[in-house]
Write a protein that binds this DNA or RNA. Sequence first.
DNA 1: CATGAATGAGCTTTCATTCAT
DNA 2: CATGAATGAAAGCTCATTCAT
Lengths: 202, 202, 202, 202
Amino acid sequence: MPIVSEEYKEEKKEQILDSAFECFAKKGFQTATMDDIVAHCGMSKGAIYNYFSSKEEIYLDLLTRATDKNFAQYHKHFAKHRTASSKMDYLFNAYLSANPIDRNRLEYIVVFYEFNLHSTRDPDLLQQLHERKRKLVTLVNDIIQEGQQLGEFKSNIPSQLYAERFWTIIDGVNLHAVYDDFPYYDVLRELKEMYLDELKSE
Amino acid sequence: MPIVSEEYKEEKKEQILDSAFECFAKKGFQTATMDDIVAHCGMSKGAIYNYFSSKEEIYLDLLTRATDKNFAQYHKHFAKHRTASSKMDYLFNAYLSANPIDRNRLEYIVVFYEFNLHSTRDPDLLQQLHERKRKLVTLVNDIIQEGQQLGEFKSNIPSQLYAERFWTIIDGVNLHAVYDDFPYYDVLRELKEMYLDELKSE
Amino acid sequence: MPIVSEEYKEEKKEQILDSAFECFAKKGFQTATMDDIVAHCGMSKGAIYNYFSSKEEIYLDLLTRATDKNFAQYHKHFAKHRTASSKMDYLFNAYLSANPIDRNRLEYIVVFYEFNLHSTRDPDLLQQLHERKRKLVTLVNDIIQEGQQLGEFKSNIPSQLYAERFWTIIDGVNLHAVYDDFPYYDVLRELKEMYLDELKSE
Amino acid sequence: MPIVSEEYKEEKKEQILDSAFECFAKKGFQTATMDDIVAHCGMSKGAIYNYFSSKEEIYLDLLTRATDKNFAQYHKHFAKHRTASSKMDYLFNAYLSANPIDRNRLEYIVVFYEFNLHSTRDPDLLQQLHERKRKLVTLVNDIIQEGQQLGEFKSNIPSQLYAERFWTIIDGVNLHAVYDDFPYYDVLRELKEMYLDELKSE
DNA sequence: CATGAATGAGCTTTCATTCAT
DNA sequence: CATGAATGAAAGCTCATTCAT
């Protein structure tokens, strides 16, 4: 019998997560302190510990939610697309339409890839990292196979490998977005064309 | 014991850097403690501070040396190659011949990309990060232009952009090497072919 | 316990300062450790750092408060005195009535003069030292000038110089109080008479 | 059977003591490090430990020598003076002729009084402090008694007390020399006159 | 005797977490 | 639930002293 509504709690949690993200972005997970987060979100230290049991848990929750939100968005948009091509197009465009010099996006990139590397050291997190990656690969693999069945894509290419290659490209491009002189659009656009050319039947 | 040779001191430094690398690989820069490094390299805390003035300096030196060594290796090998094609081949093969599941290589990847992301937050380090990247892009750009002049590569392609694309691909592949089920060879080989196909004159 | 009154916090601060004083008195600022202070005041190390940001800050606050208290006391008592003579008398008596072998007073003397000498090496502290001294000289100078205007004191003496001389004497006597066989009263009483004799009109 | 001559050793010792003095003056005994002294005197750390067994010993030796030199100087000069008056004159003039803003002198003052306060905390050092002070008081006391016997000084004054008073004045003036706007000459000259007036028979 | 690299106890300070109010 | 003062283990770093060469 909770005293406050679930909505209230969820709202509070998101406030904390937003502040935590800002702090992790500015200083990194290890260097950002609970006091930083407290100062940023305006509530008390005790309050935060009512919603999260540790700094690590905030970190985990923050990034789990971010990737979940990502997945949800993908699936939501895919529902609107009829062809595999348009789905692939959508995926590429999700990154092409992103503003590479948007401070918030860069911060997210840094925090996100730092978390991936961090996850490398903890068996449980590594497990989750693999699962998420598998889901991402499957997402693209399904599209490619769909395109192959519908005749949009060449039927003799290894779909799984192409799915892997897609995310390899995306992560490469994202990582380079931290260089402010990186020709993000141009590189990504060309890679997209190169990629789709190989994929599509003549 | 005092009055030791420069070689001795250099050797000591490398011992410390090796131990530090192991510790940073196992726990990350922030989490690894000086005591960890002390325990790993067997010398006393004071001894380490005779060679490096802070944990941060060890970190910086470690990664500066690693990238310098990398550059030196590239330039050394390029001297042996006559054609631009064979140089590009060498570059790709440097990554294709790497064992993606070699523990040491994975550790290096994690530490290296973590350092890049870390550098993002310090103006001085960011500056260095940019410089290193510029040098890497120039390295490839020079090869491509050389190939264009010699008629090996298409003359109408933007060499700079292709150089950027090269490192985007490499970083993407490296980053995915942390997933033990990643088909490292296959993905990289196909990307290499795709990349060189576009580059070479028919 | 949180959300405590300002009084509570002030009390805590004073507890810490009292303990710090004891420790500095016993060992000196540099030699006394935070652990000594922790052990003496019974609270945790973290608690102390909630009230002061460094050992140095404790030292500074301790001595700033002590001298401020001194000034306040002087001014408070001067309000009760009508003549310049009685004010000078009060000043001398403040030192004559002090118990020279009181352990606490001796400790204060040592800590206080050590701090003065310490301040000599830091431009900011030296500045403060000068200001405090100027205020002390002004305090006495004002009294002398007042006495000259009222005809109590000779009008042809340089008041400023006499003010300087007053504190010279006081500091000399204080410093010698650390010698337990020093005839504190006798020396100070004679110096007082000598001093006032020269000051007073016949 | 020492390998090097005593003179050589003594010279080395003095080199070390000079450097140590500079360092203690600049930073204080606790804050100055052996490395500071090493850097200043140009010899190795081990060399210093051949002549002194600890930093504390350097400190002690430094100040013992300084005060011994002082005593020796006094006695040497007193031999030249015939009257008690001229001896007292000499003593006062030793301080009156000192340049109060001479950096070296100020440094000596700070180091010297810091050492006195430091000695307060160690029974052995306190003992030495007392002995030295007793000798200083005796020095002046002897002069005054000599003057009384020769009829130069009033015979009914307590010589011991006057001797105490002398050093009280000197220490007060010295201590104030650290304030660069202190009218050192004027204050000391007036105190001298005041003092001698009381002493001398009409 | 001279050297300076090595030692390691000990220092100040930080900060995730707890819990009395 | 909210608060923020309290905790104390641990962190990075220093430095007087030693001793192999």
